[in-house]
Amino acid sequence: MNSQFKRGIIELCVLSELAMEDMYGYMIINNISQHLDVNENTIYPILRRLTKEEYFTTYLQESSNGPPRKYYKITNKGFNYYLKLRDDWDEFIGGVYEILNKGGKKHEDILRKFKERTN
């Protein structure tokens, strides 16, 4: 997949994770990589960039085992940005599905239509 596109989607996922609760870096990486095939090195720069943009703030919190962890917390600005990005995404993906579904929703549909047309 186009890496710019993928980065944008991961950015949306990172925002969504942090919209739910404050998390430390590795937790975000883990949560996202459970669902998507992401290389960890794409997430850290996003965290850093969105923190620079004041969409996130960070704080250190002691953990029961091991050294303190850096938690990321979404700001109001970040939350508004998330809502906007999510709207954009819904609109985009909705449009994509409207196009795709014209040709049928399932493989069988698509295949049947294709056969009908080419036979």
Binding site: Y24, G25, Y26, I29, N39, E40, N41, T42, Y44, R48, G66, P67, R69, K70
Partner: peptide
């Protein structure tokens, strides 16, 4: 930041040799 993330990954059982694979 990387040290923190990697330590957690190692604690979960990631092998040292797979660090680059996982962290880029």
């Amino acid at each position: 930041d990387h040290k923190e993330m990697m330590q957690l990954a190692l604690d979960e059982g990631l092998e040292e040799s797979k660090i680059t694979e996982k962290f880029g």
